[in-house]
Design a protein around this nucleic acid. Structure first.
Lengths: 255, 255
DNA sequence: TTTCCTGTGTGCGCTGGCGCACGGTCCCGC
DNA sequence: GCGGGACCGTGCGCCAGCGCACACAGGAAA
C-alpha cells in the first residue's frame, strides 16, 4: 500500500481543453437554494485528483472539505500492522471532511481517491460559517452525515457476517452507484485493500462473477454486464444502505 | 434473541426509597452551561429500564432521546436471518437517539439496554429546539456524534481483522469504561449476540482470560481482576476509540 | 521486437470460527 | 429441599479465508 501523496498538476493546456466545472454536478451543492450556493460560490475551487491521492491523513488537521463531482473517495482505516479496511465511500452525493463541521477537526481514518476525477474544494472556515447559519446547508450536511453513519454501521455488520463473494458485490454496487456508470477502473489488489481481504480472495470471487456472466474483468477494468443479477448475489447490506440513503437524501433524485 | 419490549414499572415504594436523580450524572448534560440545562430541566424526566429493554426499533419514529446516567445501551443491528452485531455502545458520556437531531428521525439499527439503570428522557422536540439555537448543546451533540462515528468505524475494522479473543477484551473495556466499575452483569450468550459470534466462542475466550487471572466469571457476572493485562490483550481498537473519545469529549474528565 | 513490471490465475497446507450436540452445574421458585 | 430451567463447558467435523509460492499474461517503454 503506497499511495501517492502529492497531487499531479494538470497543465495549463489541459485546463484550457476542459470546460469550466459546475458546482451543481455535486448533488449536495445542487440541493442548496440559489442564495446559499451564491454565498459559497466565491470560495469554491475546482480541483482534479488522481487515483490514490490522499485527501487527508489520520489525525492531520484539515483545511478544506471536498465535494466530488465525478470522482469517488474511500474512507479507510489503516492499522498498525498495515492491514486496512474501508469504512465508507463518498461520491457526488456527499462531501469529504465531515469532521470539520462536526467539531473534531480530524479523524483517525484516511481519505483516498478511489476513482480519479474532479472535486470542489471549500475552505473549512467558509463551510463552518455557512453551517453555523443553521440553514439548508446545515440541514443537508447533517442528513448526509447520518447516511454516512448508516453506511459505516452496515459495513461493520457486513464484515462480521458476510462472505467475500457477497461483499464484493456490495462494494461494486456502492461504487457504481456513485459513478453513475457500469465500468470501474480498479485493480483486484486495490479492491482487496478496501475490503480488507486477500487479493486472491478477490480474484476468486471476481472469477465466479465473470463465469456467471455478471461482470467482465480485464486487467484493471471491471464492466458490469448484468446489474440485476449482481444485486441478487449481494448481501442485504447494499439494499439497506441504498434505501436509507435515498430516504435521507431525497435530493439525489430531484434531478 | 427475545428482548422484553415493555418497560417494567417500578413501584411507588421503590421510587420513594430512591433519591431524586440528578441530570448532571449524565456527563453530556453536566457539560452544559447552567442556563442551557435550566431551559431543558422542565422537560427532563428520569426513567429506569431493565436489561434487554428496547429503546427503539429500526425504522420506528422516535419520540424521545435518552441520556444514560448509570446504564449502558447497545446500538445493534439485527439481520434478516436473525444474526446480529453491535455497532456501538452508549453510556453516561452520551445520548441515545442522535438521528433525531441529525434529521433522519429513524435509523436501521436497534437500541437495547445492555446494563440496567437510569436515564433522563427528553422529548425530541425540546432537543431539536435547543439544538437549533446553535449553542453549547449543538456543539456537544455534534462532537459526541463524531465520537460515536469513530466507535462504529473501529467496530467495522475490528470485525474484519481481529480474533474473538481480542474483541472480547475490547468489548469488556468499552463497557466497563461506561459503567465506571470492574463488574458486569451479562451472560455469555448476550455478549455473543453483541459481538456477532457464537456463544461457544465467548465461552472459550472468557475461559482463557479466567485462566490467565484477568477476569473472574460466575454465571452472568464478570469481574475484571487485572485491567492492565486486559488492555494488553485487547487489539489496538480499544485504545484508538478511547483516545479519540477523550479528545473529542474533554468534559469526561472535568469531573 | 524485446524486455520487464504489474496484474491475474492457481495450488496447498493451516487455522479460526461455525454448527451441532450433549453433559454438567448453578440458582430460582415452588 | 428439590425440581427444572437457564447458563456454561467441551468435543467433533467442516469450511471460508489466510499466508505463501509460483507460473503466466498484458501492455507500456525502450
Amino acid at each position: 500500500m503506497r499511495w501517492r501523496t502529492v497531487p499531479r498538476r494538470k497543465s495549463l493546456y489541459w485546463a484550457m481543453a476542459n470546460p469550466v466545472p459546475n458546482p451543481r454536478k455535486n448533488l449536495l451543492l445542487a440541493a442548496l437554494p440559489a442564495t446559499e450556493l451564491k454565498r459559497l460560490r466565491p470560495h469554491l475551487r475546482p480541483v482534479h485528483m488522481d487515483l490514490g491521492h490522499v485527501l487527508y491523513e489520520p489525525g492531520r488537521h484539515l483545511d478544506h472539505v471536498y465535494f466530488p463531482t465525478d470522482s469517488i473517495v474511500s474512507l479507510l482505516y489503516v492499522m498498525e500492522d498495515g492491514s486496512s479496511a474501508e469504512i465508507a465511500v463518498v461520491g457526488d452525493e456527499g462531501v469529504v471532511g465531515i469532521s470539520l463541521f462536526m467539531g473534531g477537526e480530524t479523524t483517525p481514518s484516511r481519505a483516498v481517491v478511489q476513482s480519479a476525477g474532479n472535486f470542489f474544494q471549500l475552505p473549512g472556515q467558509a463551510l463552518k460559517t455557512e453551517f453555523g447559519r443553521g440553514g439548508a446547508m446545515q440541514h443537508l450536511l447533517l442528513r448526509y452525515t447520518q447516511a454516512l453513519i448508516t453506511q459505516m454501521a452496515q459495513t461493520a455488520v457486513c464484515n462480521r457476517h458476510h462472505s467475500v463473494d457477497q461483499q464484493l458485490c456490495r462494494w461494486l454496487l456502492l461504487s457504481l452507484d456513485r459513478l453513475h456508470g457500469d465500468e470501474l477502473v480498479m485493480t483486484q489488489e486495490l479492491i482487496a485493500n478496501m475490503l480488507g481481504v486477500r487479493r486472491e480472495g478477490v480474484t476468486e470471487a471476481a472469477g465466479k462473477l465473470q463465469d456467471a456472466g455478471v461482470i467482465r474483468y480485464r486487467r484493471g477494468h471491471i464492466k458490469v454486464l448484468d446489474r440485476d443479477h449482481l444485486e441478487g448475489l449481494s448481501c442485504e447490506c447494499y439494499a439497506v444502505v441504498k434505501k436509507e440513503t435515498d430516504r435521507l437524501l431525497p435530493y439525489l433524485h430531484r434531478q
